[in-house]
Design a protein around this nucleic acid. Structure first.
Lengths: 147, 147
DNA sequence: GTGGTAGTCAACAGTCGTTGTTATTTAACA
DNA sequence: TGTTAAATAACAACGACTGTTGACTACCAC
């Protein structure tokens, strides 16, 4: 948990109102240690609070991301995903099922390069993505087409 | 140029018909050493061949990508981009203007990690993205808001 | 050169993820 | 409790992309 604070505390400390909608979204995120899509969260939210608007989910996520409380990552699987794990790490992305997994590989260590100094570019963030097949999908691909 | 072949040659060698549309799209790609979006290519194509359909551009790009003749990369700037440079490299992505630049950093060297072996995941491709501000945008940001 | 055919195309509507607008509601604080 | 700025639901609209379909054509056999 960043700054030792819960997401709702971070919202409040930054002058944002603590509405039931935000409360619920924060809860859902904190109980989800995966990489939910916006739609995943929207579905879970409407199950509890049917009047919840998709727009509210988007807005709240952008607010939390703006505070640095979460990260929104786009791994090219269509739509971004909510990243609750703020420690430095990289991602495994399955090209078959779209699953996203964390790996404890710090991009700052593995992609901190002197060659970049030659470029007129201010690097703020490094990102490493490993694409391929997760165990499950690789297993399925290995099976014959028969049966 | 991969396999020492032009894009049209690769299409033909793989049994795909050499239509004027494909010819044009291949030409545009080969003359473009940037990272055009689908829309960029579509605009350039319709300038020459006004009847060209956006769908045809998409289809042709997917075909070329399927042959490994080009790569379609998604760097989170909305829509994918056509990557003509097939040599191993990484990308600088400006968070302000969305510009994408190549850097000669081979992901296989800088992100080839033994820790991955512990994961049930078949890595096929590695990708490093450096996000930040390009020189131009950093310059603009540095200026005061006045004047 | 001609004819047949599989492959390809343009057109267009539809999907998906995301955002803008606005009238209404509400959390926070005096 | 009243006030007010902020947040919300509803809904239409957008950009990127895809499915469908009937018309067209590059290619091959002759």
């Amino acid at each position: 948990m960043p700054h030792g604070q819960s997401l709702v505390e971070q919202l409040r400390d930054n002058g944002l109102k603590l509405t039931p909608q935000r409360h619920l979204i924060c809860q859902l995120i904190e109980n989800n240690h995966d990489h939910p899509t916006v739609d995943d969260l929207y579905e879970q939210a409407t199950a509890v609070m049917p009047s919840m608007s998709l727009k509210t989910v988007y807005t709240t996520l952008y607010e939390l991301a703006g505070l640095g409380a979460i990260r929104l990552v786009n791994v090219g699987t269509g739509g971004f995903r909510v990243e609750c794990n703020l420690s430095p790490h990289s991602h495994l992305v399955c090209r078959s099922c779209g699953k996203v997994m964390d790996v404890p590989v710090d991009p700052a260590e593995h992609a901190d390069l002197s060659v970049l100094k030659e470029y007129d570019f201010e690097v703020e963030q490094r990102e490493i993505i490993f694409r391929g097949l997760c165990g499950e999908c690789a297993g399925r691909a290995g099976e014959g087409p028969g049966a």
